[in-house]
């Protein structure tokens, strides 16, 4: 075993101890997500009681809400007045389980805390700076209630951050066609995994849903000569 690997092992051991001190349950419940996202997220889903930062892509956020809302969990969206309901429906979000609080104004943090008490999934776009004390209070509340916070913006102590590395639209040409699909490279950085996980997703696809990139079958090489 090389010296580097030993150090990495020690670091992960210390991290686990730290988590135990902070009172996080290691075997905490995990909210299911769509399968192509589940493989990216540490733990295979959204961990109850954790906060995630999400890139400013509304369809990525809606894709994260889709599965929990289908399973009957209430989802709250705070501070995003321009969320498209039709896109949400096409992504599979159950709109009857979604609550929008579009303009909380300066009281966004109080509103988020109130809503996080009862709704299992809360997505929020911070309306201002947060102090470490506020973050600690909200995190404690989330851990206590087992809610998931998805933040579109900056959030200290996030469990993982979901970023969009590259995207590419197809369907539109030079004055013809219409938008059909977008191939998105999503990367997830987490303290739990040393290397960011990356995947290419089709979001949205032709029907507005989320699907995996079809992997082209390898072309068999012809023997030459």
């Amino acid at each position: 075993m090389s010296a580097g690997a030993a150090t990495a092992q020690e670091i992960s051991l210390l991290r686990a101890q730290l988590e135990r001190v902070q009172g996080r349950r290691l075997g905490a419940a995990v909210l299911p997500t769509l399968p192509s996202l589940a493989s990216l997220l540490p733990g295979g889903g959204l961990r109850a009681g954790a906060a995630y930062t999400v890139a400013p892509s509304a369809s990525l956020l809606l894709a994260l809400l889709a599965r929990p809302s289908q399973e009957g969990s209430w989802c709250g969206v705070v501070g995003m007045p321009e969320l498209g309901a039709e896109a949400a429906e096409q992504l599979g979000v159950d709109l009857s389980r979604v609550v929008l609080i579009p303009d909380p104004g300066a009281r966004w943090l109080a509103v988020t805390a109130t809503v996080a008490d009862v709704l299992p999934v809360v997505a929020v776009r911070p309306g201002g700076r947060v102090t470490p004390g506020d973050v600690a209070r909200l995190s404690a509340r989330l851990r206590d209630r087992g809610g998931v916070l998805l933040v579109q913006g900056v959030w200290p102590q996030a469990e993982a951050s979901i970023a969009v590395d590259a995207s590419e639209w197809t369907g539109v040409g030079d004055g013809h066609g219409f938008l059909q699909r977008r191939v998105l490279t999503v990367s997830v950085t987490s303290r739990r995994q040393a290397v960011p996980r990356r995947a290419r997703l089709v979001l949205p696809d032709e029907t507005g849903g989320l699907s995996a990139v079809p992997t082209a079958a390898p072309v068999p090489m012809r023997a030459v000569g």
Binding site: L83, A88, V99, L100, I101, P104, T114
Partner: peptide, 23 residues
């Protein structure tokens, strides 16, 4: 409980402060 919490938010922000979407 969901209803109670959302009513509280509604009391804070006004009647159109909490919305449910439909297409």
């Amino acid at each position: 409980r969901v209803h109670h919490a959302l009513s509280r938010v509604q009391a804070m922000l006004g009647h159109r402060g909490v919305l449910t979407p439909a297409v």
